[in-house]
Design a protein around this nucleic acid. Structure first.
Length: 218
DNA sequence: CTCTCGATTAGCT
DNA sequence: GCTAATCGAGAGA
């Protein structure tokens, strides 16, 4: 098991105020997501992301300047979490990265747990250990992220992201169309989903440069 | 007010 | 492979 002491520098606000969601979606791969709960810390390396936003992205909740009670967070200046409920059941975690008034966000779709495994086991007792944090809804269940975290300051002490020095080569990233946005017309086809390593069999991330089970994560 | 359906998942056939 | 779960956002009457 990897050491929970692998800690890097908390990403500053400037990491979340960027004009290009595709560039940021790739940037966050290999960064460490950390969540502090009353029961303790959990962390995981981000292995799968999707980019949302840009002028007319029909897959983005804020498309066409659609401001509602739910989407308002997307129009806030970057550096906060946008968490919403999907299918009435699952929470989805996004990082807001726009300058303000422009809805740009990164959906976190999968992580590789690096600390707090016992907490994750407790929260998802019936989940198989493989793939237990692969999927946007599973992440939030594993890390205890709920709708109450909507608007959470990502430079605060509840949810944040660390650079722990992992550098990912372009050849380790697979780009595919985003999942579940078929309604978005031509935007659905854009390769805005990014996976750090990918299994040809399952399509899931395999985090190629890691072997966290032996505790020798970089 | 009513109706539809979703940036999904788990469990069953 | 199929579908129930579960609820609020968003649209339209």
């Amino acid at each position: 098991m990897p050491s929970p002491s692998i800690r890097g520098a908390k990403l500053p606000l400037s990491a979340y105020r960027r004009p290009n969601p595709v560039e940021r979606a790739r940037f966050f791969l290999g960064k460490q997501l950390v969540v502090r709960s009353p029961e303790g810390l959990c962390s995981g390396l981000i292995t799968e992301t999707e980019a949302y936003g840009g002028n007319e992205d029909l897959a983005c909740h804020g498309t066409g300047n659609r401001r509602t009670a739910r989407t308002q967070m997307l129009f806030e200046p970057g550096g906060r979490a946008y968490v919403y409920l999907c299918y009435g059941i699952h929470s989805m975690l996004n990082f807001v990265i726009g300058p303000g008034d422009i809805p740009l966000a990164i959906l976190i779709r999968a992580v590789h747990i690096t600390a707090g495994q016992d907490l994750v086991k407790k929260r998802r007792p019936r989940a198989p250990k493989k793939g237990w944090t692969s999927g946007p809804g599973r992440i939030c269940a594993a890390l205890a992220i709920t709708l109450a975290d909507n608007g959470c300051d990502l430079t605060g002490n509840r949810i944040w992201v660390e650079d722990i020095g992992i550098r990912i080569h372009s050849s380790e990233i697979t780009a595919t169309p985003r999942i579940g946005v078929d309604y978005a017309g031509e935007w659905a086809a854009k390769p805005w989903r990014f996976v750090w390593g990918i299994s040809k069999k399952t399509g899931n991330a395999i985090a190629p440069t890691l072997n966290c089970d032996r505790g020798d994560a970089p």
